[in-house]
Simulated scan of single mutants.
Amino acid sequence: MTGFARVDGHADGYSWTFEVKSVNGRNLDIRCRQPAGFDTLEAAARAEIPKRLARGSVNLNLTVNRSQSVSQLRINRELLAQVLELAREIEGAGAAAPRLDSLLAVRGIIEPVEEDEGDARERVEAALKADLGRLIGELVTARLSEGARLVTVLNGHLDEIERLITAAAACASTQPEALRERLRSQVAALLDAAPALPEERLAQEAAILIAKADVREEMDRLRAHIQAARDMLAEGGAIGRRFDFLCQEFNREANTLCSKSADVELTRIGLSLKASIEQLREQVQNIE
């Protein structure tokens, strides 16, 4: 299932953008891109995403920017005391007293105070992990929203398959009288065969003809598959793999129906049925 989510955040002079998108996939494939030094976020994502998603190709991207921080300043009192002592000695020798701005201009008197980078990074990573959880939650919401729309589409395909099965059941070639008439003509052809077939062989051939002409079993199974599909949609959750297998069973029965058909109308319905099943299967690939 497809989905997209984005989360922006900032803390302690850092700003970041999280983006995640997912597309259809048979299995769960997670790919992460993050700046150097933020590798713990990939480990967190690989631990958290499988708890919320079962299938899909998930791409997570993190960009981080650091603002130019203004450092605090402090006076190096020990160095200032040494400079003042020298200034008094110079003043005692008859020289003019140094001005304050001259004293403060001495290298090292005023120095910046750097923040403890380790503490800041810990707070930033904690905020990033919180945003990661929120990001995955928004992705799940987006996928659920798409899933709700897909349910309507899938039910529409199931309605069409059910309509075609009803049309196949109503087809004249599937009716008991039509089957009996076809069997009579085929048995007559067997009786006219030269050399004549033994009665035991004739009974075997008649049984084969009956089995080949009767598609009621295939239609019964198709109806059962429709009910199973509707039950899965009502159940919800990660049903993609089971639904995909069910589509294979749909297709198997439709192929058998077409192979048994000896009637143009029934063959046309069978081909339409196969096309509808294929459309259903394509949509099922979008389900988790």
Score class of each variant (00 low, 15 high):
I49Y: 03
K274D: 07
T256P: 08
V106N: 04
D8E: 15
K129L: 12
Q82C: 04
E89L: 14
T63M: 06
I136C: 12
L86E: 14
D119C: 01
N27H: 14
A172H: 10
A203F: 09
Q72G: 13
G25A: 03
R46A: 09
L266Q: 00
R46H: 13
H10K: 13
E146N: 05
V215D: 02
A193N: 05
T267H: 06
K260I: 10
L79T: 01
D131G: 04
L100Y: 05
E91F: 05
N155M: 08
L73F: 12
E162A: 15
A130N: 14
E125S: 07
E48H: 11
D220V: 14
S261G: 14
A234T: 15
N155I: 06
E282R: 07
E160K: 15
S173M: 02
R55G: 05
E78L: 07
R221N: 08
H10R: 13
G9F: 03
E181F: 08
L84F: 06
Q82L: 11
V7G: 03
L266E: 01
A44F: 02
S69Q: 14
A170G: 09
C32S: 12
R182K: 08
L209T: 06
R66M: 11
I210P: 00
G108M: 01
L79M: 11
I110W: 05
I208K: 13
T152V: 14
F250K: 08
Q283F: 10
S276L: 03
I208N: 09
